[in-house]
Design a binder for these strands. Structure first.
Length: 292
DNA sequence: ATCGAACCTCCAAT
DNA sequence: AATTGGAGGTTCG
């Protein structure tokens, strides 16, 4: 096997690679067995269908990849990891109360990712009424049965399937893979995407309201899933997914019963309360509660 | 408008 | 050992 290429990113702000990769945003990363001759823990995953291995040592992110992919991989990783986010400003907006302060110090460096919108959409449709191990399993299955065959110097692997590739599976194919009632949602989403009705990758950059409206027009996508997709793949840092954990946190720490904010308004209440980086607040609150 | 139940499947807890 | 309940939600009645 050819010698892999190793590049580095120098961080100028707090970053915690491991917490970020396994914080429930992305589901194809895996931790590798320790390498003999390198320091740091390595993680393998895929960015734009390119396999990369990442590790963090102090303020350096190491990137290992097949040398046939050129230097643009570095740029792709930086983009994916959102290393440019101004964490100091973000933490500044999170210093208003003790609970948030604690979350930011405890998980300092935790980041939002910038994933591929289509992959993110399919992933979070899968997340409905589901748990993390099974979400990972479903994503693996859909890649292994519909994604393009690719090879690099580490060996063979599969890309995340395009909408057309998922069309080939069809609803029944998806059911056979164990998607259950989510099969018809994903099948429909794939048809809508391949026919250009939604064009999720074109949504980035549009307004919060426009994107939300487009996304919830897809079956299987409600307010929660839409906000996940917007936050984890479309640069909407104000997106605020309200799931059962976040609801619990809000009720316990912020919105007491006398405030009588109905569940349906919890999202807008939070966005007003936490501001333009509400999505980051959400991720820290969620992570803290989930890890507790 | 609002509120439960039902939904596929897996698997941990009876 | 067989059964039940629930899981990071959405849809339908």
């Amino acid at each position: 096997m050819a010698k892999p290429k190793i590049e580095t990113i120098k961080l100028t702000q707090p970053y915690d690679l491991k917490e970020t990769l396994y914080s429930g945003q992305a589901f194809r990363w895996r931790q590798l067995e320790p390498y003999k001759h390198t320091e740091g823990i390595w993680h393998e995953g895929f960015i734009n269908s390119i396999r990369v291995r990442l590790s963090q040592v102090g303020n350096t992110i190491n990137i290992e990849f097949d040398p046939k992919h050129k230097e643009f991989v570095i740029q792709a990783v930086e983009t994916y990891l959102r290393v440019e986010d101004d964490m100091f400003s973000i933490y500044d907006t999170m210093s208003s109360d003790q609970y948030l302060k604690k979350a930011t110090s405890q998980y300092r460096g935790l980041h939002i990712l910038r994933q591929d919108p289509w992959e993110c959409l399919v992933t979070f449709i899968c997340s409905a009424n589901n748990n993390i191990p099974r979400i990972r399993q479903l994503i693996e299955h859909i890649c292994n049965s519909a994604g393009k065959h690719l090879t690099d110097h580490y060996g063979a692997y599969r890309a995340f399937p395009t909408s057309s590739e998922i069309n080939n599976l069809g609803e029944q194919g998806l059911r056979n893979l164990g998607f259950g009632f989510r099969a018809k949602y994903i099948a429909k989403a794939a048809v809508m995407e391949s026919e250009g009705q939604i064009a999720v990758s074109q949504l980035r950059g549009r307004s919060y309201g426009e994107i939300l409206e487009s996304l919830v027009s897809i079956p299987g996508v409600g307010d929660k899933v839409a906000n996940c997709v917007m936050l984890f793949s479309m640069d909407c840092l104000e997106a605020f997914p309200v799931d059962v954990w976040v609801r619990r946190i809000l009720r316990e720490n912020y919105v007491m019963q006398e405030d009588k904010v109905p569940d349906s308004q919890l999202r807008t209440w939070s966005q007003q309360h936490f501001g333009p980086f509400a999505g980051y607040v959400n991720q820290y609150l969620f992570h803290k509660r989930r890890m507790a």
